[in-house]
């Protein structure tokens, strides 16, 4: 078995006083191979975003405390890395896209400038940066990229802003893309477009994608493997088709049942019974 791209082992992240901590992440372990797409599914508060941010130590460590575990990216433990190596890791090896594209872009700079910054930081060998930016914008499906270069974020729609964020993330050609609920703030048709874009990118580059979502519907067509998180623990993991067809854990089963099915006559939405899961 080759060295996994990302290997998280027994990661624990606590908030609050050490005597009585809130265990946001309670001993999770998972691994990702290069080029693989892993979806982490769970409800709000299950610890998905905290895990994603912890991967490059983006969590603010005064309120958060990483109490246990290690995160190995290509064999190196991220939790032990010095700051300068961490900064060259971020963006170049591991890139992020966040949930709210409108507030993830700096409002006072053009999108061209912001992508330029990303390229400037990690690929100093590039000569014609503007051409690179136009190429990146074209790859994510923005029409007339040469004109859009000088637009400000507030001039773009939500879907376009998210595409710009993806372009920023891709500009440095990372090995792992962490997508933290990238489509939650967008409406359904744009959701599909963004997921289609990610699928296309998955095929053209050998980029691994870690997709965080609470929407099981996104997962089936897109992810190779899925991990289900519940209250800080991974309760089930496996190839997507398997988990969807044959969920083992009661929580997974409940989650899958919660997705309304087209054509099915439902009088009441299914509610998860937490007491029955513990």
């Amino acid at each position: 078995m080759s060295v996994p791209l990302l290997h998280v082992e027994n990661l624990g992240i606590h908030f609050g006083p050490p005597a009585d901590p809130v265990k946001a992440v309670d001993g999770i372990s998972f691994a990702m191979q290069a080029g693989e797409t892993l979806a982490v599914v769970g409800e709000s508060g299950s610890g998905k975003s905290v895990t994603a941010l912890a991967l490059t130590r983006l969590l603010a460590t005064p309120p958060a405390r990483i109490v246990s575990g290690k995160i190995e990216f290509e064999g190196r433990d991220i939790l032990q890395l010095p700051d300068s190596s961490l900064r060259s890791l971020r963006g170049k090896q591991i890139a992020y896209i966040f949930q709210e594209p409108s507030s993830s872009l700096n409002p006072v700079f053009t999108i061209g400038y912001q992508i330029h910054e990303a390229i400037e930081l990690h690929r100093p060998e590039v000569d014609d940066v503007e051409k690179e930016i136009i190429r990146a914008l074209d790859t994510v499906g923005i029409r007339e990229p040469a004109k859009r270069l000088n637009d400000y974020p507030h001039q773009l729609s939500g879907g376009m802003q998210q595409r710009v964020m993806i372009a920023m993330a891709l500009a440095c050609q990372p090995k792992l893309l962490v997508a933290d609920e990238p489509t939650t703030a967008l409406d359904v048709t744009i959701q599909k477009q963004i997921i289609d874009l990610l699928k296309e990118l998955k095929q053209t580059s050998n980029m691994a994608i870690l997709l965080i979502t609470h929407n099981f519907g996104l997962v089936s067509d897109f992810a190779d493997r899925v991990a289900v998180m519940f209250r800080g623990k991974i309760v089930e993991t496996g190839p997507t088709a398997e988990v969807l067809r044959n969920p083992q854990h009661p929580y997974t089963r409940a989650l899958i049942e919660c997705v309304p099915k087209l054509g099915q006559k439902q009088h009441r939405l299914k509610v998860i019974d937490y007491a029955g899961i513990q």
């Binding site: 490059t56 983006l58 900064r87 060259s88 890791l89 971020r90 963006g91 170049k92 890139a95 992020y96 966040f98 949930q99 709210e100 507030s103 993830s104 872009l105 700096n106 409002p107 006072v108 700079f109 910054e117 990303a118 930081l121 990690h122 964020m165 920023m168 993330a169 440095c172």
Partner: peptide, 26 residues
């Protein structure tokens, strides 16, 4: 505390760069 600061950190900007190029103009 806004997301774009986190996004700037995630792309690898140093503290000084974030303060001078991102926060100060805003």
């Amino acid at each position: 505390a806004l997301p774009f600061t986190l996004a700037a950190k995630a792309v690898g900007a140093s503290d000084g760069r974030i303060i001078l190029r991102h926060l100060l103009p805003n």
